[in-house]
């Protein structure tokens, strides 16, 4: 199915958030996630199903003021 990851369309086979992150190559990274504008904690990821057109944000530590 097609989902939007960090504003770019991606085709994923995974049907839950945890598997999708692995498929997208974020498995080893220190990231935080939000699905359709809502925070999804690390411990919830495996139980959160994905649907066509979902908007996923994958954020990491960056420089800031």
């Amino acid at each position: 199915m097609k989902i939007i990851v960090n504003a770019k369309p991606h085709e994923v086979a995974a049907t839950d958030l945890q598997s999708a992150l692995q498929e997208l190559g974020f498995a080893g990274s220190s990231v935080a996630t939000a699905l359709n504008g809502s925070f999804v904690s690390r411990s919830q990821r495996a139980e959160v199903p994905l649907a066509e057109g979902d908007r996923l944000e994958v954020l990491a530590p960056m420089q800031g003021g």
């Binding site: 960090n6 974020f26 080893g28 990231v31 954020l59 530590p61 960056m62 800031g64």
Partner: peptide, 21 residues
């Protein structure tokens, strides 16, 4: 020190910055 969150790339660039912090 202050930091932010921004979109991660699949190469894990954020992880390197986090380590240096």
């Amino acid at each position: 020190i202050t930091v932010s969150l921004r979109r991660e790339t699949a190469d894990g660039s954020g992880a390197g910055f986090w380590g240096s912090l």
